[in-house]
Write a protein that binds this DNA or RNA. Structure first.
Lengths: 183, 183
DNA sequence: GTATACATGTAAACGGTTACATGATTCT
DNA sequence: AGAATCATGTAACCGTTTACATGTATAC
């Protein structure tokens, strides 16, 4: 389980409320770990009970009050212990790949719009990553350790999207070829 | 959920028992969808109840009897309906990326052996994919539709591993650079 | 007036993981 | 004698998803 640890990293980078964390998980952290607000609130309560994080109530006017969490010493050392544990190989769940193999038993060209929609999504994501890279890391030679590590993770996302786009083009070419030969 | 559909695809490609399916999920199908035998047996029973698959008892001597499942008409049409549904974007769970960002709050060089172990795993997987490609698709111009679709999915796996290897080299270079500057 | 953003929760259902269980056969 | 392969299952637990719930404030 890494949701606790992803939350710890986010709170170490910047303290925040459950709501703010949920928004971060929709954006930067969500690139490599997704979570809904329900999960986040539940885990935050457990982490507070365990002393990994500390909450501070912040009253706001014009807006609901919020609880701002920050990482506590116990959380920091738990993160360190987790870092030294070996990573289990990630379990793969690639629905589109299942569909592509399933297409052999239906009309393969019916998948073309689906794959094109996927392709557009990945192209849009790549564009957002590249914009974010220029905004957040304009001068790669002037980054501290934290930023360099954030940047290398972002580069991974960028390369993943590039590879995926090229592969989806390959998939589309294959589907079109099968379509032509089915005529 | 796609486990049902992954099982259907596998049974359409080749009927088999729960045990045989579990082995396939450890190999070819496991490239893009993982499942343990417990999950598989549970889902097979549900699918049989729903009429998606049909079982045939096969008595063997020298070995335990087995139930060989094959896809039924209802399963085939369920697969077709699923194919026409839009794919939800996959939820990402990339534990190593969380660790890399977490490394900013610990000694980053402590992650180096971990990343190297990961790198070796991906290199070994790439080698297996390439061997499998040569064995199963020696002549890409002489493939039927089913094989072409299997091949394009395998090419996706190969490109994913290549990209990951290059990225892990990038990560290692970053960690080494941080280590040198920390001296 | 309607939609969106802010802010936090409960409850139920589902899917996946881990541990345990059984029993025969073949290979070393 | 012990390990690995074949073959199928139960039970408990945990994490994730989805639906429901509430209420204020701001923007259009």
């Amino acid at each position: 389980m890494a949701l606790e640890h992803a939350i710890l990293v986010s709170l170490l980078e910047q303290p925040g409320s459950g709501y703010e964390l949920a928004r971060r998980f929709d954006r930067s952290i969500g690139r490599f770990w997704t979570a809904t607000h329900q999960q986040i609130y539940r885990v935050l309560r457990r982490m507070e009970t365990d002393g990994w994080i500390a909450a501070q109530a912040v009253t706001q006017d014009g807006r609901p009050d919020k609880k701002v969490y920050s990482a506590a010493e116990a959380g920091r050392s738990a993160l360190g212990a987790w870092l030294r544990e070996p990573v289990e190989p990630e379990t793969v769940r690639h629905e589109l790949a299942v569909k592509i193999r399933a297409a052999a038993f239906e009309d393969p060209s019916a998948l073309i719009p689906e794959v094109e929609r996927h392709r557009e999504g990945h192209a849009a994501l790549l564009a957002r990553y590249l914009t974010g890279e220029q905004r957040d890391f304009p001068d790669p030679s002037a980054l501290d350790a934290q930023q360099q590590l954030q940047h290398v993770v972002l580069r991974g996302g960028i390369e993943y999207e590039r590879m995926t786009l090229a592969w989806l083009d390959d998939v589309l070419a294959t589907l079109h070829r099968l379509h032509r030969h089915a005529d």
